[in-house]
Amino acid sequence: MASATAGPPPQAPAEPATRGRRPQAPGTRHRTRRVPGWAWALPPVAALGLSFLYPLVLVAKQSLSPDSGGHSFAAYTQVFHEDSFRKALWNTVWIATASTAGCLVLGFALALVIAFVPFPGGKALSRFIDVFLAFPSFLITLALLFVYGTVGMANGLWTDATGAAHGPVAFLQTPWGVLLAEVTYFTPFVMRPLLAAFSQVDTAQVEAASSLGARAPRIVRQIILPEALPSLAAGGSLVLVLCLNEFGIVLFTGAKGVTTLPMLVYSKAILDGDYPGACAVAMVAVVLSVALYALYRAAAARALGGGRRARA
């Protein structure tokens, strides 16, 4: 093994420093002057401020400065009196709420099967869900046009079978079409955190419960659901925010009857050129979404904390 010549002889003379970092006199405080921690955060914060916060502030400002000049809440009072705004607000809220409820029920049921009634290919399926999350939402509406549209699979089946000129399926241009698209697109957003939470559920607990004679519904209610509740809350509130903000699905539906807040912002600004009005609607949408997003962050923090506790 080693030739035992490692290291200098015990009384090696002090070597001259070849480069820098000389041992310093004992007792002296040699704190290198360092950039404080918060200073490193300044460049990215500045970038974010310039490209995101500053424009948002300008939107708020513009919403308070009507074209006629001066500062007033005129844009807001006008927007609030418009029928289209009230309808858009109502549409946005109810479609988002209903979609979220649908996503939660569907996502919970599907994730339950993947996690606890495993089948070959289940793993690949969860990867498919990850890919699904990376695709744009409007693809779903585009696909639904081919399934339920005036020319499309469902109506095609009907006309093939009955010989009628038109099929009966015509809900795509209604809020129900938007609802179906949003439930389809956002359900994976609920499933992913749920699958993560389910993988934390102690299988021994499930086995112990079934050995004690509990049947599947009772196990789901008493063991799995409590464990999944924080993730359900987090996933649900995220989906609620994303549904409130959803634009692509509504735009592709192309229905004049279904207007949501983001759609209203778009049509006021781009189609009508009414910037103060668009900015006022935008501020309402921002307040609504950010408030809900704050709730989501709180729920997500709890879900994470709960998970950590469960693991400890």
Binding site: L48, F52, P55, L56, F247, C279, V286, Y293
Partner: peptide
């Protein structure tokens, strides 16, 4: 604060982000 700031663009509707950039720039 930093966490909240950098996650904020997720909460704000993308249409509004577009509008704000249009207004600002």
């Amino acid at each position: 604060v930093l966490d909240g700031l950098f996650m904020l663009p997720v909460a704000v509707p993308s249409v509004v982000v577009g509008l704000s950039l249009l207004v600002a720039f």
